[in-house]
């Protein structure tokens, strides 16, 4: 017996447009709903006395602390301090890493000499440098920036080198035909060819940097979100600890979204749409 499959054209006149709109609204509301569920679990667990007294604050206590810190401007100061350190360490790290990565990716000799050591330092947690950072750079911003530099530099060298090593050979033949010299080839062929992968690596690196700064601020500086966590714990202010954690997570997401947008630049889209 033959089974017949009847596939009808979708009726565009009714429903489908509305359905698309409704689906996209639902997609946007779903994460909010998940957040509310998590909040409810937290609230219920707290109300039921699941946590020993003084260990985990109630959501309303955290909200109150959040409002107070926000109004006083203290939270903004900590955020700015952390972002400032990340920005310097990250930008300097990227500026140093990208040219070196391009050269390592294109030159077998340099690669052989440096790559194992870049890898060694990349797997070494940047926090391990804290004692030296303090000895060399004293207190305040510089040691944290140094650690952020290390956190960014090694992973970006590696990512750039890997991308530069996998640029199709045909581009270099075309560059030869066009009469490009070595430097011109690096800037006009290798660099744009690695940009999509580089943008992805920069996005990962900023996330790592944002994680590392919190740890780096737990020793040394008297400001920043990492300091806020340690300071609040020392004062047994667990509500402030949670305020800092929520702020760190939220800013992390904002940074990620901003960097994800970079992938939409027309000049880069080829790397993400193929």
């Amino acid at each position: 017996m033959t089974q017949y499959y009847v596939i009808r054209a979708a009726d565009a006149s009714k429903g489908s447009h509305m359905a698309g709109w409704a689906t996209s609204m639902l997609r946007r509301l779903l994460p909010v709903a998940t957040g509310l569920v998590l909040l409810a679990i937290w609230w219920i667990a707290h109300a039921a006395g699941a946590f020993p007294v003084g260990t985990v604050p109630a959501p309303d206590e955290v909200a109150a602390a959040f409002r107070k810190e926000l109004v006083s401007g203290r939270l903004a100061d900590h955020v700015v301090a952390s972002l400032y350190r990340v920005a310097w360490g990250y930008v300097l790290g990227a500026l140093a890493a990208i040219p070196l990565g391009l050269v390592i990716g294109r030159s077998a000799g340099t690669r052989a000499a440096l790559l194992p050591w870049i890898n060694f330092f990349r797997t070494l947690s940047p926090i391990a440098w804290l004692p030296f950072a303090v000895i060399w750079f004293g207190l305040g911003d510089p040691p944290a920036m140094f650690i952020l530099f290390l956190a960014t530099f090694f992973q970006l060298v590696l990512a750039t080198a890997a991308a530069a090593g996998s640029v199709p050979r045909v581009y270099y033949r075309v560059a030869e035909d066009l009469g490009f010299g070595r430097a011109e080839t690096l800037v006009r062929v290798t660099l744009p060819a690695v940009m999509p992968q580089l943008v992805t690596a920069l996005r990962v690196a900023v996330g790592v940097g944002w994680m590392v700064v919190v740890a780096a601020e737990m020793l040394g500086p008297q400001s920043g979100l990492g300091f806020l966590i340690i300071d609040a714990r020392n004062g047994l202010r667990m509500d402030l600890v949670v305020v800092a954690m929520i702020t760190i997570g939220a800013i992390g997401i904002v940074l990620d979204v901003v960097f994800a947008r970079l992938a939409r630049v027309p000049m880069l889209r080829w790397g993400f749409e193929r």
Partner: peptide, 25 residues
């Protein structure tokens, strides 16, 4: 004299527009 090669596929620079690719030549 100089020569130019046309490849089977993928010889264009994907980060440049059609106009920019031709201008490069």
């Amino acid at each position: 004299g100089a020569s130019r090669t046309i490849y089977q596929d993928g010889g264009l620079f994907p980060w440049l527009t059609v106009r920019e690719n031709v201008a490069l030549g």
